[in-house]
Amino acid sequence: MCLGVPMQIMEGDDMSALCARGEETRRVSLLLLGPQEPGTQVLVHIDTAIRVLDAEEARLIEDALCGLEAALRGENFESHFADLIDREPQLPEHLR
C-alpha cells in the first residue's frame, strides 16, 4: 500500500525541495507543483510533492496516519479521528 504523507518544505529550488516530517527529512521533486516557499505543507507520494496542503488538511492527514500507526500497534486509535466522531463519512463532491 502506498500512502501520501504531509511534509513541510525546508528549502528548495525550481525542481526539488528538502522536506521534513517529524525527524525525517528527504529531498522531493517539485516538478508537479513548481517552486514553493519554505514552510509550505505539501502532500508527498513516492518522493514527489503532488499537492499543496493548507495547515488544517495537513493536520488531519497527520492525525489519520498516527491513528493508523496506533491501530497497528493494537492501541486505542479513535482519538486520532476526532473529525469523524458523531458523523457519517462524506464522499467528496466529485463522487456524489
Score class of each variant (00 low, 15 high):
C2H: 11
L3H: 12
V5W: 07
P6L: 01
M7E: 03
M7G: 03
Q8P: 04
I9A: 07
M10D: 04
M10F: 07
E11S: 14
E11K: 15
E11P: 02
G12V: 06
G12A: 05
D13K: 11
D13C: 11
D14L: 14
M15P: 00
M15D: 03
M15Q: 06
M15F: 07
S16Q: 14
A17L: 12
A17I: 11
A17T: 12
L18I: 01
C19I: 06
C19P: 01
C19A: 15
A20W: 00
R21S: 13
R21E: 08
R21K: 09
R21V: 04
E24M: 10
E24R: 12
T25D: 05
R26E: 10
R26T: 09
R27N: 00
V28N: 01
S29N: 06
S29L: 04
L30F: 06
L30P: 02
L32K: 15
L32W: 13
G34T: 12
P35A: 09
Q36F: 04
Q36W: 01
E37P: 08
G39Q: 06
G39M: 06
T40C: 13
T40F: 08
T40Y: 05
V44E: 03
V44P: 03
V44L: 09
H45I: 12
H45S: 07
I46A: 13
D47Q: 15
D47H: 15
D47I: 09
T48V: 11
T48R: 11
A49F: 12
A49W: 07
A49V: 12
I50R: 11
I50F: 05
R51N: 04
R51V: 03
V52I: 15
L53I: 04
D54P: 09
A55R: 11
A55M: 02
E56Q: 14
E56F: 06
E56G: 14
E57A: 02
E57Y: 00
A58K: 01
A58I: 04
A58Q: 02
R59H: 09
L60I: 07
I61S: 05
I61H: 05
E62Q: 10
E62C: 02
E62F: 01
D63E: 11
D63M: 04
A64L: 00
A64N: 05
A64G: 08
A64D: 07
C66V: 02
C66M: 07
G67C: 08
G67S: 09
L68E: 03
L68S: 03
L68Q: 03
E69T: 02
E69Q: 04
A70G: 05
A70R: 13
A71C: 01
L72C: 10
L72I: 09
L72M: 14
R73G: 03
R73E: 12
R73F: 00
R73C: 10
G74N: 08
G74D: 11
E75M: 10
F77I: 07
E78N: 10
E78A: 13
S79Q: 15
F81D: 02
F81L: 15
F81K: 10
F81Y: 15
D83I: 00
L84S: 13
D86C: 10
D86A: 15
R87A: 07
R87S: 13
E88Y: 02
P89I: 00
P89C: 04
P89T: 00
Q90W: 06
Q90L: 15
Q90A: 13
Q90T: 12
L91G: 04
L91T: 07
L91Y: 14
P92E: 06
P92M: 10
P92I: 06
E93A: 10
E93F: 11
E93G: 03
H94Y: 15
H94F: 15
L95A: 13
R96N: 12
R96E: 14
